[in-house]
């Protein structure tokens, strides 16, 4: 069933939800938010699009197959932990550095961000894999 209201709303909501999910992801280390919530919001955006335009359409919007997103996310998480091990610290020790960029000035950047990004991808991938599996007609 096609609904004009739903499809129009979804068209505008998807970019906003994605933007908001990125915001949640980036503020997550010190404030409420993080990879998990960010990932859920992004997945909600994609699934809203899926309800309005069909799940196969939502699948086309994704950069990769959902399970590959999960794989990539897990590898990122693994990488963020192993990074500390290569320096001789225990697994998952947070490693920080400060970047000086011309525009915003000083940026504190570290492996927890990488970890969060990994979680973000895993959550999007896993949620969409479940939704696509449930929405499949066969």
């Amino acid at each position: 069933m096609k609904s004009l209201i739903l499809s129009t709303a979804a068209k505008y909501l998807l970019p906003m939800l994605l933007l908001f999910s990125a915001y949640l992801l980036l503020r997550g280390h010190d404030m409420p938010g993080g990879g998990f919530t960010g990932g859920l919001v992004a997945a909600a955006g994609f699934s809203l699009h899926g309800f309005a335009f069909g799940m196969s359409d939502a699948k086309r919007l994704l950069p990769a197959r959902p399970l590959r997103l999960v794989g990539a996310g897990l590898l990122l998480v693994l990488g963020s932990g192993v990074f500390a091990m290569m320096k001789g610290d225990p697994f998952l020790t947070g490693t920080w550095t400060t970047l000086t960029l011309p525009g915003p000035g000083e940026w504190k950047i570290g492996t927890p961000l990488l970890f969060d990004l990994g979680v973000f991808l895993v959550v999007i991938g896993a949620t969409l894999a479940v939704l696509l599996g449930l929405g499949r007609e066969d």
Partner: peptide
């Protein structure tokens, strides 16, 4: 713990 995780993630691709 890391080896099974790594290989599982890789084979998802």
């Amino acid at each position: 713990i890391l080896l099974p995780l790594g290989f599982a993630a890789l084979s998802l691709f």
